[in-house]
Design a binder for these strands. Sequence first.
DNA 1: ACCTGAACACCGTTCAAGT
DNA 2: ACCTGAACACCGTTCAAGT
Lengths: 242, 242
Amino acid sequence: MPSEQSTATAAPPRPVRRSRAPRGSLSSDLILDHALRLLDEKGLDAFSMRALAEDLGVGTMALYTYFRGKDELFRAARDRVLAAYTPPSAEGSWDQRLRAACIAVHELFTGRPAVLRLLAESTGNDDFIDTATAAMDRMLALLREGGLGREDAARAYGTLSRFTIGSALREVRVCARPEALEAFRARIAALPPERFPHLSDLAPELLLATENGGDQYEYGLDLILCGIRALAQQPASAATGS
Amino acid sequence: MPSEQSTATAAPPRPVRRSRAPRGSLSSDLILDHALRLLDEKGLDAFSMRALAEDLGVGTMALYTYFRGKDELFRAARDRVLAAYTPPSAEGSWDQRLRAACIAVHELFTGRPAVLRLLAESTGNDDFIDTATAAMDRMLALLREGGLGREDAARAYGTLSRFTIGSALREVRVCARPEALEAFRARIAALPPERFPHLSDLAPELLLATENGGDQYEYGLDLILCGIRALAQQPASAATGS
DNA sequence: ACCTGAACACCGTTCAAGT
DNA sequence: ACCTGAACACCGTTCAAGT
């Protein structure tokens, strides 16, 4: 007789899994691997505990022996991604290194769209993993090395992190989606030029900027770094407009 | 006999609504009013079509005669909020007016936390309401007035909008939540100073910056404006680091 | 037309049970 | 201990029906 498992004559609508999953077939690491793959491929909205279990070929409740629930699983997935962060090699002046560090964080985020959304929506209530804390510490060190005062360093860091999250979010949600880009193009082309003269006039440039998401991040980063450098050359904290 | 409605002797677990809602009791505007109130009070996560219907005292399916579904209702709610935007009065130099316009947008967003999340998660596939488009056009006009080239104006606008969204998100998710602030305080206090020296050293300043979310926005905005002003004084597009 | 409840196909999670 | 299915309390939405 063929080796293929022969008890059922033809598979009815039921899922493919036939028997109990063997005892050691699961682990938190394996679960997280599949969860991140599912998240990257299908997106956060399509993710569910049931879908993840099916992807693993186990019953839904098997997941609950490794994670208290969906939230805990998501936090573990997020930490797994953050742990993968490796700071860029330290070369050049303090601001060049700061620039490189920000870009690395931004790339980490855009590379994991679903995890970015998790991060953006987190209330910051939970502990972060060491690598994330270390990255933060390193950026603060660079800002201090540049000569910024205590308060300026703290606030400049806040500015960089807010811009990085906002930027990565936009890239993931629109720049990286062909349909979204196409919709943007159509919308901007349909605008009545007499009511929105500048928008219509700058349409090609706006489109180009939207298509090249990564470049846009670096462009904005440089604007902020320009302000930070100005801060570094002043004795007191002052970046007020007038 | 008392006036209170007398058919039932004692109300069983069922909801309070007793009879059919009268014919004209509903309207898209009324639905949106309640939806926005619910969204602001309970948050996006607690919102559901069923909860909204109960809040309105109608059956769930009544909502579907006014909106095709949840997405359409959310888009209408978002547009209602965006339509409430009134640009600040035009006074001062171009950069002062740009600053004021950004702050107004930021305040609009932080005032409607749930709608902000909707906006941050939107793929940008859908049309925006006129007021939002007009605000965008006005900002581009100011950047051009400042002397920025076509490409610089487009990209500077992108930078401002990315920072504004990222900043508003952070404020809504952590700065405005006492529990989140408290968690942040506890976390930062528990950090081993020998491993994260700068983070520990700057703990008070980081906390202060997190508590004063709005100030943090203006601080970062000024950093970006500093970069934009530098751009305005140069002939070609150049904000590169070195 | 406007509003309704029942039903369908989902979801996260609890619980008691199998091995 | 590890894994299971059934069940519970949700969800958005379709559908046929009432007025």
